[in-house]
């Protein structure tokens, strides 16, 4: 049977989630894995926005912040279940992305980057300064998701680390599946068309503004879900999650691994999640090594790590 790129990607992800735990020497690796998957979800959103539609956002951490703080605040103030709070966060992120995206997606290139950057910083400022609501820069506790207890009731007794590893892994697979479906849908084709040339796309009848906005909203929801998952597993969240550096990190992960492919971007997220853990011994040189890796990838592997490596091995595109 010939594998389509879509099913191949999903199989790789599923194997990765299911098999790697057999090689984990301790519970700490589940934590690293869970972080990798959360970052993977966020960058999958970036793939839709940047890889498919060719738009740049430097403010996606703002949406992650909204998702995270929805999980922290909604259970306390409205007695909402944390899972519903995550859904609420995603909804708020979508609405905000729609409202903000409408005017700023008219901008192009750097201007779009700057406008989204502004949005991210605004969210970060609100989280830092609205102390009576968000408890400010010192952060706030997040309620327990409670799903682990439910599983325990069903006879599935997982440690905290194991639970979050498999739960985030599952979310990532679902997220990747949706993104891959989008890639092959009429919307996906329209997005890739406007990525190639907005003028050409418009002449063949693509509603450029509408599709750009759609991509922006969808990717905002991904970032929001990633933020929610992070908050729920950490059970504590600070405004750092919405910080500018986090936005840059998301874009960097996606570009490093290959922003055109879901698996590539997740691969990039994996590298940038694992490297700091591997490099703890050289903590002082961490930034330098990251910078060097980035630089080399930009110069020699312009499509990103994974697509370039695959091309080398297979001699053709994915």
């Amino acid at each position: 049977m010939r594998l389509t790129p879509k099913s191949a990607t999903l199989i790789v992800l599923a194997l990765l989630v299911a098999i790697t735990p057999f090689f984990f020497p301790s519970g700490y690796y589940y934590r690293v894995g869970a972080l990798l998957f959360v970052n993977g979800i966020a960058v999958t959103g970036i793939v839709i926005l940047t890889g498919y539609a060719g738009q740049i956002s430097l403010g996606h951490a703002g949406f992650a912040g909204i998702g995270a703080y929805a999980c922290a605040l909604a259970p306390v103030h409205w007695g909402l279940h944390p899972a519903l709070a995550a859904v609420l966060g995603a909804a708020i992120s979508a609405v905000l992305a729609y409202l903000v995206g409408r005017p700023i997606l008219r901008l192009k290139g750097y201007y779009l980057g700057v406008a989204t950057l502004g949005f991210g910083i605004l969210v970060s400022m609100v989280l830092n300064n609205e102390r009576q609501l968000t408890r400010g820069p010192d952060g706030i506790e997040v309620a327990d998701l409670g799903l682990r207890e439910v599983l325990k009731g069903w006879g599935l007794n997982l440690t905290n680390g194991e639970f979050w590893y498999f739960f985030c892994g599952l979310c990532l697979i679902i997220g990747a599946w949706l993104a891959l479906n989008l890639h092959n849908s009429p919307t996906g084709r329209a997005l890739r068309a406007l990525h190639g040339s907005e003028v050409a796309a418009r002449t063949v009848g693509v509603d450029v503004a509408r599709f750009k906005l759609q991509a922006f909203v969808i990717s905002a929801v991904y970032a929001s879900v990633a933020g929610s998952l992070l908050a729920l597993q950490n059970k504590f969240i600070t405004p750092d999650v919405a910080g500018f550096m986090h936005s840059v990190e998301m874009v960097t992960m996606a570009v490093l691994g290959g922003v055109g492919s879901v698996l590539g971007a997740i691969f990039g997220a994996g590298i940038l999640t694992l490297l700091p853990q591997v490099l703890t011994v050289f903590a002082e040189y961490e930034q330098m090594v990251l910078g060097l890796v980035m630089l080399l990838v930009m110069i020699f592997l312009r499509e990103g790590l994974l697509p370039s490596i695959l091309k080398k091995f297979w001699g053709k595109d994915e």
């Binding site: 199989i11 790789v12 790697t20 694992l274 011994v281 297979w314 994915e318």
Partner: peptide, 21 residues
């Protein structure tokens, strides 16, 4: 493709394992 990736993933894990003290 599957093979290459799993190998890469395992390679990364091996590197992680080396850092134990």
């Amino acid at each position: 493709m599957t093979k290459t990736l799993t190998t890469t993933a395992l390679g990364l894990l091996a590197v992680l394992g080396l850092t134990g003290t």
